[in-house]
C-alpha cells in the first residue's frame, strides 16, 4: 500500500520532469534551427537553408531581397545569393515557446562584399516558429536593418545602402 502511494508520487514527478525536459529540448532545437540557418547561408548551402522554412512561410528580408511568400519563393530568392561573400553572425537569440509554436528574436552582424567593397550590416530579426511532424521550422521571419553600408563609411550616419543578404 505504502509502495503504491510512493509509485503514484513518482509518476507525478516524472510527468513534471518530462514536461521540463521537453521544454529544454524544444529550446535547444529552436536555437539550433536558427544557428543552422546562418551556418548554411555562410557556407553557401542556400537550398538547405530554404528547407528550414515551412511551406507557407512568410519572409521579409528587410533589404533588396524584399519579401517572399512560401518556401518555393524563399528558395528562389536565396538562390540569387549563390557564391556571394556573405558572413552573418547571430547573437542573443531569445525564444518563448507556447506548445507547438514559438516566438523569437535575435540580432545579427553581417560582413559582406557588395560591389567589390567591404560591407557591414547589423539588424534585428523577429521570428515565429512552428513544430511540424515533430520538427521545428521557421514560419515567419522579419528583418529590420540597423545599418548597412561600406566598412569605410561606417555606421555613424546609419546608412542603409541597397544590398541583398539573407
Amino acid at each position: 500500500m505504502e509502495d503504491e502511494k510512493r509509485v503514484r508520487a513518482l509518476e507525478t514527478e516524472i510527468e513534471a520532469l518530462e514536461k521540463e525536459v521537453r521544454h529544454l529540448v524544444d529550446m535547444d532545437d529552436i536555437h539550433n534551427l536558427r544557428l543552422a540557418y546562418y551556418s548554411l547561408v555562410n557556407e553557401d548551402r542556400l537550398d538547405e537553408a530554404a528547407a528550414l522554412f515551412t511551406d507557407d512561410a512568410v519572409v521579409d528580408f528587410g533589404n533588396k531581397l524584399g519579401r517572399a511568400q512560401g518556401k518555393a519563393e524563399i528558395r528562389k530568392k536565396l538562390a540569387t545569393l549563390k557564391s556571394q561573400f556573405i558572413k552573418i553572425f547571430p547573437h542573443n537569440h531569445v525564444v518563448e515557446i507556447d506548445g507547438d509554436r514559438a516566438d523569437g528574436h535575435l540580432f545579427i552582424e553581417g560582413r559582406l562584399i557588395v560591389d567589390a567593397t567591404s560591407f557591414v550590416t547589423a539588424g534585428k530579426v523577429t521570428d515565429t516558429y512552428v513544430r511540424e511532424n515533430g520538427r521545428w521550422l521557421i514560419k515567419s521571419m522579419v528583418g529590420e536593418i540597423f545599418y548597412a553600408g561600406t566598412l569605410a563609411e561606417g555606421w555613424a550616419e546609419l546608412p542603409n545602402r541597397p544590398h541583398a543578404s539573407p
Binding site: D3, L10, E13, L24
Partner: peptide
C-alpha cells in the same frame, strides 16, 4: 521504489 526515487531526485537536480 527506493532506487527509482533516488534516480528521480538526481534527474530533478539535472533538469
Amino acid at each position: 521504489v527506493d532506487k527509482l526515487e533516488a534516480r528521480v531526485r538526481e534527474l530533478k537536480k539535472t533538469v
